[in-house]
C-alpha cells in the first residue's frame, strides 16, 4: 500500500485535485439550479410548477451514468465537442440539482405559511418576501440534508472515471492495471475518498446535533 503512494503519488494527487475541482464546480452550479427549481416548484404559477416537477422527476429517476454518458457520447457527436471532464461535471450537476431542488423545496414548504402571509400583509412583494423571509429560514432547516447531498455528490463524482475525467477513480483503474495490485490500489483510493468525505460527514453530524 505504501509503495502505491510512493510510485503513483503524482497520479493520485492529480486524481484528488480533479475530483475536488469537479465536486466544487458541480456543487456551486447544482446549488444554484436546484434552488431555482425549488422556488419554481413552490410558486403559485401552475406552468412553472409543472416545468420544475418534470425537470426534477426526469433527472432524479435517470441513473447518473446514463446522463453522463449522454453528454459524453451524444452531445459531442451532434452539437459541440466537450471533454470528458466537462461532460462528467455537467451530468453530475444536473443529477445533483434535482436532488438539491427536492431538499430545498422541503425546506421552503416546512416554513410556516403564516410567514409568507405576514410578509405579504406588510407590503412586501412575492419575490421580496421569498428573498428576505422564506429562503433564509428554509436554508437553515435544510443544512443537514444538504450536507448529505454534498457528500453524495463527492461520491458520485467517481462517475468521471467512465468518461475519462482523470478523477481519483479513473487513476485508480489506471494504477490497478499498471501495478497489478488492485487490492491495495483500491484501498489507497478509498482512503483518499475518505479524506474528502469523512470530515464532511462528521461535521454534518455535529451541525445536525447543534441545530436540532
Amino acid at each position: 500500500m505504501i509503495s502505491i503512494f510512493q510510485n503513483y503519488g503524482g497520479e493520485l494527487l492529480t486524481g484528488l485535485g480533479q475530483t475536488l475541482l469537479c465536486s466544487i464546480i458541480a456543487l456551486i452550479f447544482a446549488l444554484i439550479i436546484g434552488s431555482a427549481f425549488a422556488i419554481m416548484e413552490t410558486m403559485p404559477n401552475k406552468a412553472a410548477r409543472i416545468i420544475a416537477r418534470v425537470y426534477i422527476e426526469v433527472f432524479r429517476n435517470i441513473p447518473l451514468l446514463v446522463i453522463t454518458m449522454f453528454f459524453y457520447v451524444v452531445i459531442p457527436m451532434y452539437i459541440v465537442k466537450i471533454s470528458g471532464f466537462a461532460s462528467g461535471t455537467i451530468g453530475l450537476t444536473l443529477y445533483s440539482s434535482a436532488f438539491i431542488a427536492e431538499t430545498v423545496r422541503s425546506g421552503i414548504q416546512s416554513v410556516d405559511p403564516g410567514q409568507m402571509e405576514g410578509a405579504r400583509a406588510n407590503g412586501l412583494s412575492y419575490w421580496q418576501s421569498m428573498r428576505y423571509i422564506i429562503l433564509p429560514q428554509a436554508f437553515r432547516y435544510v443544512i443537514p440534508p444538504l450536507g448529505n447531498q454534498f457528500i453524495n455528490l463527492v461520491k458520485n463524482s467517481s462517475v468521471l472515471a467512465f468518461v475519462a475525467g482523470f478523477d481519483l477513480m479513473y487513476q485508480a483503474n489506471v494504477i490497478a492495471s499498471d501495478s497489478l495490485k488492485s487490492m491495495s490500489t483500491y484501498l489507497c483510493v478509498g482512503l483518499l475518498y475518505l479524506v474528502l468525505t469523512l470530515p464532511l460527514s462528521y461535521y454534518m453530524r455535529h451541525l445536525e446535533k447543534k441545530l436540532a
Binding site: I151, A172, M183, L187, T197, L198, S201
Partner: peptide, 23 residues
C-alpha cells in the same frame, strides 16, 4: 458503517470484483 457510507459505490464494486480475488 461510517467508512462504507462515505465511499463511492463504484469503488466498492471494483473492490469486490478486482480486489477480492486477491484474497
Amino acid at each position: 458503517i461510517d467508512i462504507i457510507r462515505n465511499l463511492p459505490l463504484i469503488l466498492i464494486i471494483f473492490f469486490t470484483y478486482f480486489g477480492l480475488p486477491h484474497l
